[in-house]
């Protein structure tokens, strides 16, 4: 009997610490070189726009690894790693610590094309409506509806969008203002666009990284917008965009290229058509970068650099009484 008890006891004690044998060692480290290698490799294997942007990631490694040194302060390491990521020229790429966040700043590569206070002062009534994420009112003596949509918060629902479209059903046209809309929930894109199509419409394609090579992607998956089975708006729509229109905003702009009743007006969007992932470095900082490509109907990824407007109009900052972009939109709809 004693030998059995001993057997079970040894087995039990062995099993209690068994996982240490099977699991990999603790990889937490503040070592600059190890964190650099980790981040560089993650981006190298999974970032989706090297080819489009003509980025030589090996050359970037050579350039930035030369800036590393032993026992470098956290802030200095952050500037090196953040600087390396900035080379990707993508605002879906960030390095995040509790003392700094790196970013590219796409919107600075075009002029500011939107001044909200001017619209509130000179175009809208003081008691304009706010329905969910939409701020809206009549323009041009009630002939045109204006809907400002500043962010894709995932809050578009049947109630608020039904109210908006019902209110402007008798107008000549609708202006949907997505200027400086930085994006957000992708689900809102389809909730919104489903109100402006009369038949199932192929709008774009998407493909995702599926291997470590720069051109290892999945098959291009088609994206369709399906008509909402309820209130829809069938008259002309002008969507206002600018360099601050990013991510989900750019996706929406890209999709409208396939919708004949929507015209894009303003300036080229900021892009941001790659879905950003999320991850953590061995030193606890987090990061994100694009891992998909949105493709046009002819399967090109070019609009990552910005979706161009159908009609280009720029804001004149010498005249702060008039929104030239909005004025042009009103003119088009009259």
């Amino acid at each position: 009997m004693k030998k059995y008890k001993l057997f079970w006891l040894v087995l039990l004690l062995g099993v209690l610490s068994c996982e240490k044998v099977f699991f990999e060692e603790n990889l937490a480290t503040t070592d600059a070189q190890k964190n650099f290698e980790y981040l560089w490799t993650e981006v190298s294997e999974k970032y989706s726009y090297f080819e489009l942007k003509g980025i030589d990631w090996d050359a970037v490694k050579t350039e930035y690894s030369a800036k590393l040194y032993e026992d470098m302060p956290q802030d200095s390491l952050f500037l090196v790693l953040g600087g390396m990521l900035t080379e990707l020229e993508d605002d879906h790429v960030n390095l995040i610590s509790n003392f700094n966040v790196s970013f590219f700043g796409t919107r600075f590569f075009g002029q500011d094309n939107f001044y909200r206070r001017l619209i509130e002062d000179n175009y809208l009534e003081r008691n304009y409506y706010i329905s969910g994420p939409f701020a809206h009112d009549f323009l041009d003596n009630g002939e045109i509806g204006y809907v400002y949509f500043p962010s894709f918060q995932g809050t578009i629902n049947e109630t608020n969008i039904d109210f908006v479209l019902e209110r402007y059903k008798d107008t000549k046209g609708l202006i949907l203002d997505l200027r400086e809309n930085g994006g957000g929930a992708v689900t809102d894109i389809f909730s919104l666009l489903s109100r402006f199509v009369e038949e199932k419409t192929l709008t774009h394609y998407s493909r995702i990284k599926n291997g470590a090579g720069p051109n290892d992607f999945s098959e291009a998956e088609p994206a369709y917008v399906t008509p909402y089975k309820g209130i829809r708006y069938t008259k002309p729509v002008i969507m206002l965009i600018d360099r601050g229109t990013y991510s989900a905003g750019s996706f929406t702009a890209l999709a409208t290229k396939a919708l004949p009743n929507i015209t894009l007006m303003g300036d080229t969007t900021g892009g941001g058509l790659g879905l950003p992932n999320g991850g953590q470095l061995p030193n606890g900082w987090t990061y994100r970068f694009s891992i998909t490509q949105a493709l046009t109907l002819d399967k090109r990824p070019d609009y990552e650099n910005g979706v161009p407007p159908d009609i280009q109009v720029l804001f004149d900052w010498n005249d702060l009484t008039t929104d030239e972009v909005l004025e042009r939109a009103i003119l088009e709809l009259q």
Partner: peptide
């Protein structure tokens, strides 16, 4: 999850729980 960890189904308006 697959190679990229995230999936793209919601980007093409066909959200799936076990995407990729």
């Amino acid at each position: 999850n697959g190679f990229a960890y995230s999936g793209q189904s919601f980007l093409v308006n066909e959200t799936q729980l076990f995407d990729d």
